Computed example of a mutant assay.
Amino acid sequence: MPVTNSESDKSPWNKGKLVGQKAPLKPPEVWAIRVRLELANRRRDLALFNLAVDSKLRGCDLLRIRVSDVRTGGEIRRGAKILQSKTGNPVQFEVTKCTRNSIEAWCSFSKLQSHDWLFPSRKDRKRHLTTRQYARLVERWVGAIDLPRSSYATHSMRRTKATLIHRKTGNLRAVQLLLGHTKIDSTVRYLGVEVEDALALAESIEL
């Protein structure tokens, strides 16, 4: 049966692309991307990149953030709470100084108001960036520092800080809360924790 135009338009944006667990960024890679975005004076991309790393949000939730979600009385807050579209549950995250500065610079440059999307579409400010556009930006960011684009995607942004926190603390419950997972099993799978990792953590605890 032939596919109609309406059906073909509904094809997933990543159809035909390599899928699977995507790698998180390492701290030197995060800073390398930041430096490139700063040097290129790409205010929006820098604010989006920094907030993606800090918030650990899914792309769909990250792009639906309004200025009022992160700014109060002209000041960028040190933390925020967002309702997840997937679960309907709130998730909290910190907003580091580096991220606050980049968001403030972007809001000031774009003259964004409280009710505006934090990352509006350039064609229509009543709409926010799409997940497809976000995915293209991530590809551009990792490609700029010579990382293999097929190994990274938007979920790399979500996994970056969560993976680092887990490696430093071994606290799966904390990471579960930060990611907004309802089940710890989801966090284990998401981080790619193996049996060997779990045993190593257990052996490091003395009773």
Rank of each mutant, 00 (worst) to 15 (best):
R66A: 08
N101F: 05
I82N: 10
I103T: 04
V91E: 15
I82G: 12
V95W: 12
G79L: 02
G73N: 04
T87M: 07
S114Q: 14
I103K: 00
K111E: 05
Q92I: 14
C107L: 08
E104D: 13
V70W: 02
S110Y: 03
A80K: 10
C60K: 06
E94R: 15
C107P: 02
S110A: 05
G59T: 11
V70F: 02
S68Q: 12
S108R: 01
D69Q: 02
V91C: 11
S114N: 08
V70P: 00
L112E: 06
G59M: 04
K111R: 13
G88R: 02
P90M: 11
C60E: 15
E104G: 02
V70A: 01
Q92M: 10
D69P: 00
V95C: 13
L83A: 14
N101D: 11
L62Q: 07
L62E: 11
V91Y: 02
K81V: 15
S110N: 07
Q113V: 09
T87N: 12
E94N: 08
R100C: 03
C60S: 11
H115V: 08
G73I: 03
G73K: 04
A80I: 04
F93Q: 11
R77Q: 10
Q84D: 07
S108P: 00
R66C: 11
T87V: 05
L63F: 01
V67M: 09
C98K: 13
K81G: 10
K86H: 06
I103W: 04
A80R: 12
R100T: 00
N101Y: 03
T87S: 11
S68Y: 05
D61W: 01
F93T: 13
I76C: 06
T99S: 15
T99G: 09
V67Y: 06
G59H: 00
Q92P: 10
D61S: 03
S108M: 00
K111L: 10
C98L: 15
T87P: 06
L83W: 08
V95L: 13
N89P: 05
V91P: 14
S110I: 01
F109G: 02
L83Y: 09
S85R: 09
I65D: 02
K86W: 06
S110V: 01
A80Y: 06
C60D: 14
